[in-house]
């Protein structure tokens, strides 16, 4: 198997960048994210970047079409389906974030209708995953059956070992990527397969979907939501939260319709024009969010809406995170 020496990483990244726009984990003052690679910008720390990769496939705001207003109303002035999206390579995705992309794929590609803008971006993207030899304190991917040393949905997997990385192409797209990087790859030295990392958090999702399916009216929800501030940070950081709003930007006689990330934590999300709201308080909204992740998505698509990335553990201002909810659900009795 090909071997990438630590010191050859810049040359490897350059070889990737020659094949498309290369996104790598970087460190900003406020936290880590993916940014276009520049010399020496790569920063690898345990766990995923604070901001997930979802914005590369579902941008935070995205134009849907342009219109022009004429005497008798609007006409669509530009509605071409998105041209082939620019080729991009996403480097350093952790196994949890690769699994999260697979959840988004279910929603946007398998859900009955195909979302053409999402599909164009996904098809133009290659995922280069980085296995985890060390877990961050907030990591709990194993709760959802993920292997921190594997990333089945990635095109290329890098496994960090002493002095370098084992490099494995997992798809035809991955083989193509590596073909252009042959010059910087050596042959595998004799190395033992590493042990999985140790996790601080003891979390499991075993039995949770079935239990939750019967807990819609459980008193757990009467208390759980009370500390929620409704800030929505959990949904913006969550790598599988995909909900969006559609709005228009009016510029006088022309404008465009766009979509932007939305949050089920906001009351307007389900508020109807006549004033009725099927999820009127934070109780219903918090309940829906966790049931969606742990019960509804497994029912509809056969996948959890949580990959144990730990972002909501890190940033929820009141610690109403999904690991805490999983524990609570497992503790409570089902008798009401």
């Amino acid at each position: 198997m090909p071997w990438l020496k630590d010191e050859a990483m810049p040359a490897f990244l350059a070889a990737l960048q020659s094949q498309g726009r290369l996104w790598v984990p970087v460190e900003e003052e406020w936290g880590s994210c993916l940014a276009v690679w520049e010399e020496k910008s790569l920063r690898l720390t345990p766990g995923p970047t604070l901001l997930a990769a979802k914005g590369l496939f579902l941008p935070q705001t995205e134009k849907l079409f342009h219109y022009r207003v004429e005497a008798e109303g609007a006409v669509i002035s530009e509605s071409e389906p998105p041209a082939a999206a620019a080729r991009q390579i996403v480097f350093g995705l952790r196994p949890c974030d690769v699994a999260a992309v697979a959840v988004m794929d279910k929603v946007f590609l398998d859900g009955g209708y195909v979302d053409c803008a999402y599909r164009a971006r996904r098809e133009a993207s290659a995922l280069v995953a980085l296995a985890c030899r060390e877990a961050a304190p907030t990591c709990f991917c194993r709760a959802f059956g993920l292997d921190p040393l594997a990333a089945p949905g990635a095109d290329v997997l890098l496994l960090p070992l002493e002095g370098g990385y084992l490099v494995r192409a997992q798809t035809a797209k991955g083989e193509e990527l590596l073909a252009q990087a042959q010059g910087v790859l050596a042959q595998e030295p004799a190395l033992d397969w590493p042990a999985p990392p140790a996790f601080l958090l003891e979390v499991t999702a075993a039995g949770v979907p079935a239990k939750l399916a019967a807990m819609f009216d459980h008193p757990l929800w009467d208390n759980l939501y009370q500390k929620c501030l409704g800030c929505g940070i959990c949904t913006y950081l969550c790598p599988t939260c995909y909900c969006f709003d559609v709005q228009s930007a009016d510029r006088g006689t022309e404008g465009y319709r766009y979509r932007c990330w939305d949050s089920c934590m906001f009351p307007e999300y389900t508020l109807m024009a006549g004033g009725h709201n099927p999820r009127p308080t934070k109780k219903e909204r918090v309940r829906n969010r966790f049931l969606h992740k742990l019960c509804y998505l497994p029912e509809r698509f056969g996948v959890f809406g949580c990959v144990g990335c730990g972002r909501c553990l890190l940033k929820c201002p009141v610690n109403l995170d999904i690991a805490a909810v999983l524990k609570k659900v497992q503790e409570v009795g089902t008798h009401v």
């Binding site: 929603v107 009955g112 995909y242 909900c243 969006f244 979509r259 939305d262 999300y269 508020l271 509804y296």
Partner: peptide, 24 residues
Amino acid sequence: LERRMKCGLGKCGRCNLGSKYVCL
């Protein structure tokens, strides 16, 4: 049923009733 809807395609999220989407 009636729900707030943005896409009608089962993507935007808000019209779910459990694992069902009212729009689909």
